[in-house]
Each structure stands twice: as structure tokens, then as C-alpha cells.
Design a protein around this nucleic acid. Structure first.
Lengths: 150, 150
DNA sequence: CCTTGCCCTAGAGTAATGTCTAGAGTTTAG
DNA sequence: CTAAACTCTAGACATTACTCTAGGGCAAGG
């Protein structure tokens, strides 16, 4: 039993356009064609496309995904290269996850300020500090535009 | 005391090109100019650019960052809008983080297979399954290319 | 003064990742 | 048998986010 591109698109939530684009980019060399030249996806193909999705979702570039797929197509001899590629990717993803978590904490800090009962006072004070800083350096007040436009 | 664009670029690790690009995109309306038309960055500006970095690093689009900055420029009246914008962004980032963590687990699963002592056997078996599947459906064997090219 | 190294803008160019269109062939339900 | 719904390719177009170039002005040291 095989699947059409439409069925695969629905199963994987990858658009038909994107599937064809991936094929053009060499990400789907394992997908066979039937006698009419239509792509005939097997379950094994779906499994590989799932792996491609994982790599894509974790931010791997198409170029690197293609490298991985190339290794897969070359069989067991390339297991070591696959390990290297995936471990390095893993490291990068973890580093990025950590950085995002840090940045999220800073956003949370902002949110706390905004949600505190004296948010208006805090924000007003910050704005005054900025205005003062600009004045000291003989620079125009950036908030002036808003004030003038009233 | 103010900073030149070069100094800000070094402090923030954002390229001069990008800083000017951000300014063009309306992300830096608060940065003043000196008498020669040069940007003069203050400490308050750096703080806002840091916030912009946090939003950018967590994947917010320039368009949405501009919305946030616009709110900031409008003063305390927009605190509620800022809360809404940041909370929604927060939710999206957390969802994305979770998805990435899941995908990373699947990559880890792959890595475990590759790193196990019988990796070659597992991979070979997988490959045979795919070949079988293709044969059953009267489709060409995708691995054939590699074999033939030897 | 003059050279070197900054700064500026406008706008062109690039890279990655899709997304869509045109034109043509295939399959399927009535 | 025909219309509707699907498939294909090639290639144009879109989007996001930079990145760079050209052409010119300003500033600081010798």
C-alpha cells in the first residue's frame, strides 16, 4: 500500500508544495514513482519524512538534512557520520534552548513589572530617566513626537 | 555620555548593518541624532535594544517587535497592550520550546540506535524492510543507485 | 591641510524557505 | 465518455531578515 502526495501532506502537515520542494532539494531521494510518474510514498518513506520533520523543527538547515539523508541512503557504513551530525545538532539545539529560556526569563521580568500594581509609576519613572538622559546629552526627547501629536 | 553605532554594535553583538536596518524598520525610534546626523545611543537606548534582542532571540518577528516598541513610545497608557503582546509571545515560545524538546527526544532515540552495539544490524534490517516494501509495491529500490554506482 | 577612519543614506544583493502559476497528463465517479 | 479532481515539472514570485555597495560627509591625529 502506498500514499499519494496529498495523503502524505495531510498525515505530516507538510504542504504539497513543501513536499515537492523538499524532493527538489534532494531530501526525498527514497520516494519512488509509479508508472505515471506520480510519487508513491511507502510507510518507510513516512518514517523518514518524520525524521526530516524532527530535524527541520529543531532548526536544522535543508543542507544539513540532506547530508543526513545522504548518509542514510549510503547504508550502515555511514553510522558514525550520522552520530557525529546528530550529536552536533543536538548540542546546538540544547544551547539554543538554554538561550531562549534565559531570554524568556527576561521577558517574564518585564511582564512582572507591567503586571505589578505600581506599573504605571515604574514605567513613568523609566520614561523620565530616558528624557533626563537625552536632555543631559543635549539630544531631542524621543517621546516628544507622541506628546506633540496630541 | 553617549555611544556610537560601532560601540553599540560591539556591546550588543548586533552588526552595524543590522542596527541601521532595525532603525529603518522602526525598531529604534528612541535613538537620537547629534548635530552631524550621527546616531547617539544612551544607556536607556541600550536597555531597550537589549529587550529587542530578547524578543528577537525568542523568535518574535520585526513587525511584532515594532508593535511593542510603539507601545513603549506611547507611555504608560499602553501597559495593558504590552502585557497582552508579551504574554501571547510567551505562550508561543513555550509551546515551541516543548515541541523542540519532543523532537530532540526523537533525535536522541535515533542516536541511541546508532550508538548501540548492534547498530549495523538494526540499520541493515531497516534498509531491508524498505527494500521489501518497495518490491511489494513494484517500485524501484532507492538504494539501488548507490549499489550501482560502485 | 590631509589622511584615515569613522558616520550617513539609498538602494541593490543575498540566502533560506517556501508558495504559487502555467501548462500538461492521469485517474475516477457518474 | 466526460468532468472534476488529482498528479507532474519548470520556473516565477514572496517573505524575512539581513548584508553589502556606492557615494558622500564629518572628525581626530600628525
Amino acid at each position: 500500500m502506498t500514499y499519494t502526495i496529498k495523503e502524505v501532506s495531510e498525515k505530516t502537515e507538510i504542504s504539497i508544495y513543501t513536499l515537492r520542494f523538499y524532493d527538489k532539494q534532494g531530501l526525498l531521494p527514497f520516494v519512488a514513482r509509479n508508472s505515471s510518474g506520480y510519487r508513491a510514498f511507502t510507510d518507510g518513506d513516512l518514517s523518514l519524512i518524520h525524521t526530516i520533520s524532527c530535524l527541520k523543527n529543531t532548526g536544522m538547515t535543508i543542507k544539513d538534512i540532506r547530508r543526513y539523508i545522504d548518509y542514510v541512503m549510503q547504508g550502515p557504513a555511514t553510522i558514525q557520520q550520522r552520530i557525529t551530525l546528530l550529536s552536533e545538532h543536538r548540542k546546538k539545539v540544547e544551547a539554543r534552548q538554554r538561550k531562549i529560556a534565559q531570554n524568556l526569563q527576561e521577558i517574564d521580568y518585564k511582564l512582572n513589572v507591567y503586571q505589578s500594581p505600581n506599573a504605571v509609576a515604574t514605567v513613568t519613572k523609566e520614561q523620565q530617566f530616558v528624557q533626563q538622559e537625552k536632555t543631559i546629552n543635549q539630544l531631542p526627547n524621543p517621546y516628544a513626537k507622541t506628546i506633540l501629536s496630541k
